[in-house]
Amino acid sequence: MKEAKAEAEMSIISMLPAECISHIVSCTTPLDACRSSLVSSLFRIAADSDIVWERFLPQDYKEIISTSLNSLSKKDLYFHLCNHPIIIGNGNMQSGKKCYMVGARGLSVIWGDTPGYWRWISLPESRFSQVAKLNYVWWLDIKGYIETKNLSPRTTYAAYFVYQLSSQHNLGTAATPVTLRVAYEHSAVAVEHSVILDPVNYEGTAPPHARYRGDGWFEIEMGEFVTEEDNATVVCSLMETSNYNCKTGLIVEGIELRPKE
């Protein structure tokens, strides 16, 4: 009975023009579009059309890609960008969505312009010309302000604090956490939690939050948010203002935003 009903529904759908089917498929996901192309030759034509895959590309993709990519179909362009991310200023494209990174120079770092507290140095493993190295402070207060117009719309993003620790680092005690917070500016709703930055604490175990990226840097997820507004500001912050122990040896590359898997 169910099989007969499914066949009847498929027969009705097959009577629709390919363009209508394309519009329907464009309201799904890239994975669903690929699955739809296996249904029949009509669905393959509809699911592979530019109508579908242009919907999955960033709205401003024409301003980002080079002219050499204009000859590709929208489907081929989508998968090309998945496999060959394009650097866009401080960001890039991944899986059809934009990634973005604010370098240390673009962050608000308390006492960051005071040479006695922070130094600006160059490291060969950094994508930025300068990173911030902590000489010593008693308080940590680092904030990044990201405008959602630089990100893909209607997308869940995670923010990551990207850093190193020098061989002579000291961030207080092994159990001293920092508070990470992600929220829209002026919003009372925020994602907030505490973590330990030292990837190997004095007991010799790695905290679950820190991850080695493989490019010379560690990262810790700060929180996530959804880009529901076209022109808003998200504030990502790292703070430790309750422990007055001297802190030293933290090296900050920046804050990176990536679409959640």
Score class of each variant (00 low, 15 high):
Thr156Trp: 11
Asn170Val: 07
Pro199Gln: 07
Glu256Phe: 08
Val52Arg: 02
Ile21His: 04
Leu69Tyr: 00
Leu165Thr: 08
Arg181Tyr: 04
Leu107Asn: 07
Gly254Pro: 02
Ile45Cys: 14
Glu221Thr: 10
Thr28Leu: 11
Ile220Ala: 09
Gly249Val: 03
Ile24Val: 11
Tyr244Glu: 09
Val189Cys: 10
Ser49Ile: 02
Ser122Pro: 03
Thr148His: 02
Gly96Leu: 03
Pro30Met: 05
Ile110Ser: 15
Lys133Trp: 00
Tyr157Asp: 03
Glu256Leu: 11
Ser22Lys: 06
Glu261Cys: 15
Ile110Glu: 15
Ala46Trp: 06
Ala8Lys: 13
Gly91His: 02
Ser22Tyr: 08
Tyr184Arg: 01
Pro30Arg: 07
Leu238Cys: 10
Ala190Val: 10
Arg213Leu: 11
Gln130Met: 11
Lys98Met: 01
Gln164Pro: 04
Ile142Arg: 05
Lys260Asp: 11
Gly172His: 01
Leu238Ile: 11
Trp139Cys: 09
Ser26Val: 08
Pro177Ala: 08
Cys34Ser: 10
Leu165Arg: 08
Trp139Pro: 03
Lys133Glu: 13
Gln168Ile: 12
Ser36Pro: 05
Ile64Ala: 02
Leu257Trp: 01
Val137Gln: 06
Asn231Thr: 07
Ile121Gly: 08
Leu69Ala: 00
Arg105Asn: 11
Thr227Cys: 02
Thr233Tyr: 04
Leu38Gly: 10
His169Gly: 00
Tyr78Thr: 03
Gly103Arg: 02
Phe128Cys: 03
Met239Ile: 15
Ala47Leu: 06
Ser66Tyr: 12
Pro153Lys: 03
Arg258Gln: 12
Glu54Tyr: 02
Ala232Gln: 00
Tyr136Ser: 11
Asp60Glu: 03
Ser126Asp: 01
Cys99Ile: 01
Leu31Phe: 12
Ile86Leu: 13
Ile64Val: 12
His80Ser: 06
Gly91Ala: 05
His169Trp: 07
Lys98Pro: 00
Lys133Ile: 09
Ser187Cys: 03
Cys27His: 12
Pro259Cys: 04
Trp120Lys: 00
Asp50Leu: 03
Pro199Val: 09
Ser152Ile: 00
Ile142Ser: 04
Phe218Thr: 09
Met1Ser: 13
Ile146Cys: 08
Glu19Tyr: 13
Gly96Pro: 02
Phe225Thr: 06
Asp48Ala: 08
Tyr244Gly: 02
Glu224Tyr: 14
His209Arg: 13
Trp138Leu: 08
Ala6Asn: 11
Asp32Asn: 15
Trp118Lys: 05
Thr173Leu: 13
Val52Ala: 00
Ile45Leu: 15
Ala8Asn: 13
